[in-house]
Design a protein around this nucleic acid. Structure first.
Lengths: 339, 339
DNA sequence: ACGAGTTGGTTAATCGATTAACTCATGCAG
DNA sequence: CTGCATGAGTTAATCGATTAACCAACTCGT
């Protein structure tokens, strides 16, 4: 295979200068280039199979058509893939590619990662965390356009997208209320994370709006099937005044709740309705009965973040946007009217 | 913040030419640069916070310190993350970054992805598939160095790494044999994939070596908990001469086998031992009892592939290597001696 | 028929490094 | 005292595009 043709080769083949060739191919330079010439250049480029060298172009224009994706743990969470994919799809549609770095949650590593990306002249950075949290943007990011994914800053100085936890929680609880439940329990995590606070607060509000006292209706555990979800559910369900339905912090804990219910002889959903959060592919649809669960919109968040970043590249002066992505409920068989 | 310093700025600050500055910083050009000068340049660079512009360097050297990672489905499989992470870690350690593209399994898209990566002058390409298969390398790849990840070619003309399915299967079966099982059933998938063929063949060999007839000991189903694993297991376990142990194609199907066993009143592991493949984080350790399962070494394969690719960049003439990555067994509670 | 606009290009500078080729002392053998 | 290494840098070309600044030839309005 001979060497890749350069712009100069195309220009020569079309009998014009490289300047003309460049302008013809890029539709740039206004009305300068005649229709017939443009066609000739196009034909020559197609004939030679010319592909512009993005590195050379990048050097001149300072734009590389690459976006940096910095994640704090790409591998171990099952959600990461969807976030990356969303960002990837949006980027690719616009002709951009994603340059990925995983920092394993190490702040020093994050700084180096951002620097490494900047060295490569990426056009912008997506800063992703693997669960919803409040972060500070590293100073090194400087004036590089940046959007936060599944995270936000305290002051809202940077565009960001996070799941609408309150809306998602209301959606899950609405499933229970619609079925007639009032005494709705909550099995939550001991981890002090943003998602916990928001889901817990929304659950409290929901009960309050319904005139129900939350005392004795909440139990905490580690974020795990067992002992976390299981033991918390046991504490909740062994009470004489046990709830008729439970809202779980997430699907993994919900597995423990199923187990506890089975052990106590409570059939789901007839004697105990269950709703949850996360809608994990390997869990929610596979439980018997299927678990009604609110999905975290990772794909959509990834997509939105990349689109927002691209928008900011066009228009760097636009005010930052804090976006709440809706969390849709996947309705399955774990909800029924209370007995 | 003022503009990034260029090499020329460093050179001026150190009172030398850019050529000298470049050679001093890169340890290149042999003994040309005096010790004292080198130090002076180094100090100036550090002082100014100089970082070389990789785009400019790439244009000149035709090396971008970037590797392309082309996956056929980055998002939907839970394994992808580990593969990416392995490749990422190896690349990063060597100063490389990963440029990712997901083709969603579309061959046309794959071609475009490779072209897009080549336009960006990536130094090499990792071609990953999300499950072990035999592929052809797209012609467009030309002379770009390339390593296959979780795939191989028919003719072995390209370096590749795939899981050692036979070794992994022998490992799983050895757990059962060591416990004293001889009539070992196999629940496998109807999908005609490489993994199925290899695991099935190895299981047959294992039985043959033990003088056991495989008739009636195998059942197929879709690759799912239910109906796949469940129904296949039911067919196998309802027979009067049912096996005392089952080797499952993967963890998802094993969940169905657990369910079938429970339904038939067979306790695991006392009345039925179970081993499986994949060792999925959300499944194998969470079942009760924990499922003994052979892990697919995705992280290690990703790492090996990137390392091999980097080796080939150094030495493009080296003969291609077909690597089999060992699959270690995670021992849990699902195996006991037959009654 | 002359200056002012268009049209449709071309020339050459530039982006920021790397590196081949050259220069200029010095040292030293013969 | 000539001539050839050797050491330590410098000059300038180069990678492959983009684009600001020019330029020549026409078209018109007055």
């Amino acid at each position: 295979m001979t060497k890749q043709p350069r712009l100069a080769d195309v220009a020569r083949a079309a009998g014009v200068s490289t300047a003309t060739a460049s302008m013809a191919l890029n539709e740039t330079g206004g009305r300068r280039i005649g229709v017939e010439t443009r066609e000739r250049v196009r034909a020559a480029a197609a004939e030679l199979g010319y592909r512009p060298n993005t590195v050379a172009r990048g050097l001149r224009t300072r734009k590389t058509q690459m976006l940096g994706f910095v994640g704090d743990d790409v591998a171990t969470t099952p959600f990461a893939g969807q976030m990356i994919r969303g960002a990837h799809d949006a980027a690719r549609q616009a002709g951009y590619l994603l340059l990925m770095v995983d920092t394993m949650g190490d702040p020093a590593e994050t700084g180096e990662a951002i620097a490494a990306l900047q060295d490569r002249q990426i056009d912008g950075i997506l800063l992703a965390t693997m669960y919803h949290q409040i972060v500070e943007v590293p100073a090194i990011i400087g004036s590089t356009p940046c959007v936060l994914l599944d995270a936000r800053t305290e002051d809202g100085s940077v565009s960001s997208v996070v799941p609408d936890e309150r809306g998602g929680t209301r959606g899950a609880l609405a499933e229970l209320s619609a079925a007639g439940h009032r005494r709705i329990g909550h099995v939550t995590t001991i981890d002090q994370v943003e998602a916990k606070f928001l889901r817990l607060a929304t659950w409290r509000e929901h009960l309050a709006a319904d005139g129900v006292e939350p005392d004795g209706l909440m139990a905490e555990g580690t974020t795990s099937m067992s002992p976390g979800g299981y033991e918390a559910a046991m504490r909740l369900l062994r009470r004489p005044d046990r709830p008729t339905a439970v809202f779980c912090f997430n699907d993994r804990m919900a597995v423990g709740v199923y187990r506890a219910a089975a052990e106590l002889g409570l059939s789901v959903p007839d004697e105990l309705s269950i709703v949850s959060y996360d809608d994990q592919e390997l869990i929610a649809p596979e439980l018997v009965p299927g678990l009604t669960s609110t999905a975290l919109p990772h794909y959509e968040m990834g997509r939105w973040a990349a689109e927002e970043l691209l928008r900011r590249l066009e228009n760097p002066e636009a005010a930052p946007v804090q976006h709440l992505m809706p969390c849709p409920v996947s309705r399955r068989g774990s909800v029924a009217p209370p007995r």
